[in-house]
Design a binder for these strands. Structure first.
Lengths: 116, 116
DNA sequence: TGTGTGATCAACCTAAGAGTTGAACAACTG
DNA sequence: CAGTTGTTCAACTCTTAGGTTGATCACACA
């Protein structure tokens, strides 16, 4: 079931509909109807997606009359960013190796002298 | 089903066992047995997890005799990092607002004059 | 007070995830 | 060749996810 925060966040982000909802919310608050409008699915389905996003802490909702305006919360994204940071080093290493390679080729310290 | 690359990656990252496997692989290649050792689950279950990671492109495997050494691939993580980047601005905005707030308090431009 | 609108709840379906066990395949080792 | 080790395949179970429809709740307005 994976109750930990990171798993809930990754689970929430694993669906393209939910990522689209987040993209929409990054441009400002929106009601459920507004959020559902672009999608070829029922309002209830979108409501469920919002629940998943809420469970992950990516969305909070207010209460204005009969509307429940949704707001984006970035804290879980920062958590993801922190997690990613542990691996950032590795792909930088890869780039570093690539850089070295390119540098060696540019400097002509390899292949220029004798063979090949 | 979500066949897009980001969804596959987030799905793969949504499980703590799989994230632990990635953490192990970040310290170097490992066989399936080595990867399975820390977990209280069958080898077959770990094998399935590896398939999910492979499907997302987070792991590739070699072939050395009867072993299938697993290697970490960071490309999908970079993709996640890029995706996150679109939201980075937002949480920096939040921090900026916090900074302004703190600055205002430090400068004493608020509250210092009369009330409270 | 009744009616239209925004949103959720509840029941249901189908498919996919995560785990199990048992059998099979592949490659080394005696 | 037989046996051992590493790994996967296949079939099964249980739970969750994503979607549907129909009913219900909550509020605004006339």
């Amino acid at each position: 079931m994976a109750a930990d925060s990171l798993s809930l966040t990754f689970t929430a982000l694993a669906d393209p509909t939910r990522r689209a909802i987040l993209a929409r919310l990054s441009r400002g608050e929106a009601t459920v109807n507004e959020l559902a409008e672009p999608f070829a699915m029922s309002l209830q389905a979108v409501s469920k997606h919002l629940k998943v996003l809420e469970r992950a802490g990516l969305v909070t909702r207010g209460r204005a009359a009969q509307w429940r305006p949704c707001r984006l919360e970035t804290a879980p994204l920062e958590e993801v960013s922190d997690w990613l940071g542990r691996y950032h080093e590795q792909w930088e290493d890869r780039f570093d190796r690539l850089d070295e390679e390119l540098l060696r080729i540019q400097n002509g310290t390899e292949g220029e002298q004798s063979h090949e």
